[in-house]
Design a protein around this nucleic acid. Structure first.
Lengths: 192, 192
DNA sequence: GTAAAAACTTGATATAGATCAAGAGTTTGG
DNA sequence: CCAAACTCTTGATCTATATCAAGTTTTTAC
């Protein structure tokens, strides 16, 4: 499944064949079965991780034991806990697979080496980070301004396809509402 | 007031005197009176902006005319609308001064030139972006998991000093609650 | 210095969404 | 293929926070 990542690289950056090979030489392929953890709360995250197939969720668990989904990541996206990675501190998050999933991992040292060695790779990484930041800003804005129903419609509209492969309970959590509320919203909007 | 920015650069990166001068040669000093706009909804944002003194807020206005504060930025922080800048599209945000404010601006072309010319500058910029992204993630997490009271305490704790210089109405909006609710929370927590 | 405009507080009431509970479907793993 | 474990739905009730309204305090601008 490395080809998926290869294709992504070709689309997002201009690399010489040597650079491509150099990148591949550091790649670690990892497979996760459904429900398997990629990261557990308390562990320090040490990778840059790209999903070539499948879907994972990043979430916290509060004192009452309820889960709060922070994000979903599917094929052609990155995942991980940047804060834990950068600060070298234990993560507050769990990441596990919603479906059987395949990833390409780089240890952060290797990843940084690649960034230093290959300017085109570094630029790509920065571009992705910018987009992630913009997406996070938009999510904050949505959470401040939208009603529960609007949040759901916005989500479906922004990420078509997610709604069908991710359990409603998790989507509700991601949107900051209970599963019951989401169920009722879906019933209502179906009518229209 | 350029010295403030100069000092920031020295702290956050290692630049040769020539590089420092090169950066300064592109800097535009801008002053804003309280209430003055830095960016208005519908305009395309074209700068990278660093605040050397004062405080601005970034917010949207919904159909009903209510304002929703997306962020505050004070001295030694950056401000602007990254989405508008990157996509070259009209901004959904307004940015205006809460206090008399002084900024250092770079047109984005010059800023990108500096990033290409000066690797240490580029690295600094990426580092800042990473931190911004992490902060945004944490804010999302807080909005999903905390009660109104916890959100306020978290805010005060994370940004001590903000609470005293920013009107409560705006803080309430930033935290996603009404001014009345914030007023009651403050009354309660004062008791304890 | 003073009038007008903002900002904040407090009380009464309304409401979106949460919680609790129980039944119906659906998926999973041996 | 079947039992156990999830997942989703629906109804009844509750609650945190919003809304509306009016008074008080603080800030602003001439």
């Amino acid at each position: 499944m490395y080809e998926i990542f290869q294709k992504y690289l070709e689309e997002k950056s201009e690399l010489t064949p040597e650079e491509s090979e150099r990148i591949q030489s550091f790649a670690i392929i990892k497979k996760l079965r459904k429900r398997q953890y990629l990261l557990q709360e308390g562990d320090v995250w040490k990778y840059d991780a790209f999903i070539t197939q499948g879907c994972v969720r990043t979430y916290t668990v509060d004192e009452k034991g309820s889960e709060h989904v922070n994000s979903f990541s599917i094929e052609n996206w990155w995942t991980g806990d940047r804060e834990s990675l950068m600060m070298q501190q234990p993560s507050r998050f769990n990441i596990d697979a919603i479906e059987d999933t395949e990833l390409v991992l780089f240890t952060h040292e290797n990843f940084e080496l690649l960034c230093r060695e290959i300017p085109a790779f570094n630029n790509m990484v920065n571009m992705i980070l910018q987009r992630s930041f913009i997406a996070a800003q938009n999510r904050i804005q949505a959470s401040l301004t939208l009603t529960a129903e609007e949040k759901y419609l916005n989500f479906v509209n922004k990420y078509p396809g997610f709604a069908s492969r991710i359990p409603q309970t998790m989507i509700a959590s991601y949107l900051g509402m209970t599963p019951e509320t989401l169920s009722r919203i879906r019933k209502q909007t179906a009518k229209k």
